[in-house]
Amino acid sequence: MDLINVKDLCFQEKVKNFIKKSDTVFNLGPVNFNLKAGETLAIVGENGSGKSLLAKLLIGLEQPSSGHILLSGHDLSKSSLSQKCHDIRMIFQNSNESLNPGLTLGAILEEPLRLNTSLTSQERNLKIEETLKQVGLMNDHKFFYRHMLSDGQRQRVALARALILNPKIIVADEPFAALDPSVRSQTVNLLMRLQRELGLGFIFISHNLGIVRHISDKVIVMKQGQVVESGKTDVIFNWPNDQYTKKLVDAHQALVNSQDN
């Protein structure tokens, strides 16, 4: 059974052009895909292709112009943001900016539990400790502040905040962009382990085609708001149909070859 089924999702966004002093319209979609428990869908494309805008539509930060987002049979495109947040959670690109520097990690993780559950204070504390352990942090980290953490630890806290409401799907927007290669590798392995243990669906937005090829089951390729190609990861990388997809894959392969030499 599908965790999520996106049907003909479209969005129109007015973009201000300060040079021409007029508005242009950015059209996203139609986007169609489905995702099962334990699967990873990667969304790739150049800057401005609509990847992050699609992520905002999926988690409810933007409302679609038309189309449907079906999660376990419920139409999320007609739900409020608070209803969506239980089942679809997001990891943002810059974990440093998304963590309040004035709050301890415990307070940051407790907030979604206070707002969205009826757990007692003791139950919330146990849930926080359990979630910190899931992402490879210690109980004492709940007393830490943002500035006391490494980049890798901050990203683990962002992951813990996404996990704490037991979502079915996590949307990750360039979650590894600010990490050095060794920390990036550890974080990728952590995500894949959690996916196996929890049966999560991942929607992964990235420029890094090496990671995309490693972790994703399916790929959507976007250009200027349109889906130019989609399919299984191996097929997209080995037999791309669209010239734009071929260009992205060839550039990735050229980079791999240069690193090997």
Rank of each mutant, 00 (worst) to 15 (best):
S230F: 01
D2S: 15
S258C: 02
F26S: 04
K232S: 08
E46W: 07
I236M: 09
A42D: 08
G38C: 04
R161Q: 12
V219P: 00
Q93L: 03
F204H: 01
A160Y: 12
D151F: 14
I19D: 14
Y145G: 08
G201W: 09
L200R: 00
V188E: 05
Q134P: 12
H68P: 15
C10V: 10
I69C: 08
R193E: 08
M222D: 10
D234V: 02
S98C: 07
I164D: 09
F204L: 07
M90A: 07
L81F: 15
L3R: 02
R114H: 10
Q155T: 06
G231W: 04
M148Y: 13
D2P: 15
F11I: 08
S206P: 03
T120F: 10
A160P: 14
H252V: 04
L57I: 13
T104L: 02
A160G: 11
G201F: 11
V44P: 04
L57T: 13
L41H: 08
E129S: 12
L137G: 12
L132T: 12
L191I: 06
H74Q: 14
L198S: 00
V44F: 00
L165C: 06
L99C: 08
L163S: 05
Y244Q: 07
G199V: 00
V15A: 06
D234L: 06
S66R: 03
H214V: 00
I236E: 03
R146W: 05
D180Y: 10
D2C: 06
L9G: 11
S72E: 15
E129G: 05
G73W: 14
Q226M: 08
N5V: 09
C10L: 04
N32W: 04
L99W: 06
R161F: 12
L119F: 14
K168G: 13
H86W: 11
K51L: 00
D242E: 09
R184K: 11
H68I: 09
A55V: 02
A251N: 10
Q243I: 14
H74S: 12
M222A: 07
R156C: 10
W239Y: 13
A158G: 11
G29K: 01
S49L: 05
G60W: 11
N257E: 15
D250L: 05
G102T: 10
C85G: 14
S206A: 05
E130A: 07
C10K: 03
N125S: 14
Q93F: 11
V256S: 06
S80L: 13
K16R: 12
Q63W: 07
Q259Y: 05
P30F: 01
G29V: 00
N34D: 14
F11W: 08
T245A: 02
W239K: 09
L9Y: 11
I203P: 02
K16E: 13
K247E: 03
L71I: 15
S150A: 13
L159S: 05
S52F: 08
T187P: 02
S118L: 13
N32Q: 04
I211D: 15
M148K: 10
E110H: 07
I88D: 09
L132R: 07
M148Q: 09
P101K: 03
K51V: 01
I128E: 11
D217L: 09
Q134A: 06
A107K: 15
I88Y: 14
Y244G: 02
K84S: 11
V183F: 10
D87R: 03
G225D: 11
P167G: 02
D87P: 07
N100G: 07
L149K: 03
T40D: 01
Q243C: 08
D180I: 03
